[in-house]
């Protein structure tokens, strides 16, 4: 599954949005796999960089809306961290488009689905 795309979502807002998406009949493209974390604040840049380095085409992080994080500032921290990594990647000559984070409310299934498809298209997974 080298040509795969990884979705990391938090077990609060992210999980609810994913469940809403699946209950509305939207399906994920085949080359996409999901991984759950208690909060997006737990992702650190070593984990992301080493995952990118092992050939994952792209990482899409779905967190809760700002001011709506159960751990108060986990999602803000994640947004800033991923912004830093995107800058690091684009400085190093690899475009920063391989990693992206967006925030979702509990019932924004359709928006999550279109966000994942746009990202998959941008990163070149089927």
């Amino acid at each position: 599954m080298e040509e795969s795309l990884l979705i990391i979502y938090c077990s609060e807002g992210g999980r609810k949005a994913l469940q809403k998406m699946s209950s509305e009949g939207f399906r994920l493209p085949s080359g996409v796999c999901t991984f759950e974390l208690p909060c997006t604040g737990r992702i650190n840049d070593v984990m992301l960089m080493e995952t990118l380095q092992n050939g994952v085409r792209g990482i899409f992080v779905a967190g809760c809306r700002e001011e709506n994080c159960k751990y108060l500032d986990g999602n803000k921290r994640a947004l800033r961290r991923i912004k830093r990594i995107k800058k690091l990647l684009s400085d190093a000559g690899i475009e920063g488009k391989h990693i992206e984070m967006q925030t979702f409310g509990p019932d924004e299934g359709k928006r999550l689905y279109s966000a994942i498809n746009d990202f998959a298209g941008k990163v070149g997974v089927s």
């Binding site: 609060e12 609810k16 809306r65 709506n68 409310g105 509990p106 019932d107 924004e108």
Partner: peptide
């Protein structure tokens, strides 16, 4: 009821019901 957050949460409380 639906989530009404614009760029950040506006504290409408709908997600608390789902929780």
């Amino acid at each position: 009821y639906g989530c009404k957050a614009s760029d950040s949460c506006v504290h409408c409380g709908v997600c608390l019901i789902r929780e």
